[in-house]
Each structure stands twice: as C-alpha cells, then as structure tokens.
C-alpha cells in the first residue's frame, strides 16, 4: 500500500508542477513567472523526497537540499536591478 501511495503522490505532484507551468508561461508580469518557478522548485523538492524513499536512494535528499539552497539565489538574482541613474526612472 505504501508504494501505491508514494507513486500516486509523486504522480500528483508532477501533474501539479505541469499545471503550475501555465503561470510560468502566461505571466503576466516577471514577478508572477518567478513565483511560479519557486513553486515548481518546491514541488520538485517534494518529488525528490518521495522518490528518495520510493527508490531507496538517500542521495536524492542531498539533491533536494541543493534545490532549496539555490532557490533563494534565484530570487536574489531576479530582484537585483540596475541602480537608478539621475532619477529618470
């Protein structure tokens, strides 16, 4: 039963990731797209944790850890902007 639940949960998560892509593609603003990317990241982390147990491969937890660490870097890189020059913006 556990295997069935794990498989079903993993499939559901991937389906949700696919649905979230609508926001990645449709936007409308850049902030919306990056938000959708953040949610895809969290969903991928959930998937990796599920698969780590399902496939008995603990290294996938390390991969999940890398994803959550780098998610913050992506948000930082997105919000950095050129400093306003001469007050024209």
């Amino acid at each position: 039963m556990t295997l069935l639940v794990l498989d079903a949960a993993a499939f559901m998560l991937l389906l949700l990731l696919g649905l979230g892509l609508i926001r990645v593609i449709a936007g409308p603003a850049g902030a919306d797209r990056i938000l959708a990317v953040q949610l895809s990241g969290t969903t991928t982390v959930g998937l990796l944790l599920l698969l780590a147990v399902r496939l008995e491969e603990p290294a996938l937890i390390h991969a999940a850890l890398l994803f959550v660490l780098f998610a913050a870097l992506l948000a930082l890189a997105f919000v950095r902007r050129a400093p306003p020059r001469g007050g024209d913006r």
Binding site: L69, A71, F78
Partner: peptide, 26 residues
Amino acid sequence: LALLIALVWLVAIIAASVACHLIAGY
C-alpha cells in the same frame, strides 16, 4: 536521514520566506 529531511524543510522555509519578501518588495 530523518534529520537530513528536516534540514531540507528548515532551509526551504527560510529560503521561501526571504524569496517571497524580496519578490513582493520587487
């Protein structure tokens, strides 16, 4: 492994709160 998974969650909520704060400000 359970502690490692807990660490993943801890890092995830820190990263997510900072990311959301930054994106909202942006």
